[in-house]
Nucleic acid binder design. Structure first.
Lengths: 143, 143
DNA sequence: GTATGTGCAAAGACTTTGCTTTGGA
DNA sequence: TCCAAAGCAAAGTCTTTGCACATAC
């Protein structure tokens, strides 16, 4: 049983074939798939998985904090990634505006700055979102 | 003629009563209104404004870079703010998770950090999104 | 006068939900 | 056994669009 499966069972969820397929897809994906993509990949494992179950399962996982849900600009549909350790929470995303790829990065400096800004404004930090949009540097030919 | 109106005319847009009402609402709002809110406020000025025109006008303004469109978490609908100067581009938002209010802030440090991170990853910066979610600090009674 | 803009209602995209059947523990 | 979970299709929410009429320039 994978770690994600175990956490689901611990949370009281019944382990169905459909859920197992969806969890496996999530664990095997490092590309922040959309619901549609999870649905397609899970369908390849177990063709009985319906899109409604994918939505419902991702919703549950989100509530349990076992996945992170993102709404990157230029895309109307939500994207997901597994979120097992709280340590891993503090990463952010660079979206390649040309390929659509999503890269992850971390920055201690950034985390410190977020806390500082929030504190200075008199607020307690609940969460923060940080997304960079860019494209790969082109090599410039020298003149 | 307001600055926003002028920029629209300069861009070749015809100035209709409906657009004037919508532009005025945007100029008078500092609370990042949703489409629905802009529609309601514009309707109070000119009851002939339809929601379709609000969507179309905000879409045009967005393309022209005259408004900024945001998708804050926990809210399914987009929110807008006027964006006249590029200087004003580099502000970010703190969303009060209790009241829903949106506060703006700027940080030179943050902008520098964004550039540094992007550069180190080998990317050219196109845009970035930074949102803080938090709630007002509560005064703690001393023990 | 003519192309652009508008309202209305229908259609789209994504997501949620009611109901009946299936199946895990 | 019994309640959670699944499939299916309908409904919901936000947004876009086709079409006929209106209007700015």
């Amino acid at each position: 049983m994978t770690e994600l499966e175990k956490k689901c069972v611990d949370a009281g969820l019944k382990m169905t074939d459909q859920r197992r397929a969806i969890l496996r897809v999530l664990e095997d994906s490092d590309d922040h798939p959309t619901v549609e993509t999870v649905y397609n990949r899970a369908g390849a494992i177990d063709s009985s998985v319906s899109i409604a179950t994918v939505y419902r399962t991702l919703g549950l996982l989100d509530e349990l904090g076992l996945v992170l849900k993102h709404d990157f600009g230029n895309s109307s549909s939500a994207r997901f990634e597994v979120h097992l350790d709280d340590d891993h929470h503090h990463h952010h995303h660079l979206v390649d505006t040309e390929s659509g790829d999503v890269l992850e990065f971390e920055s201690e400096e950034l985390e410190a700055l977020v806390h500082k800004i929030c504190d200075e404004m008199g607020y307690e930090l609940v969460d923060h979102v940080f997304e960079i949009y860019g494209h790969k540097k082109k090599i410039k030919k020298s003149a």
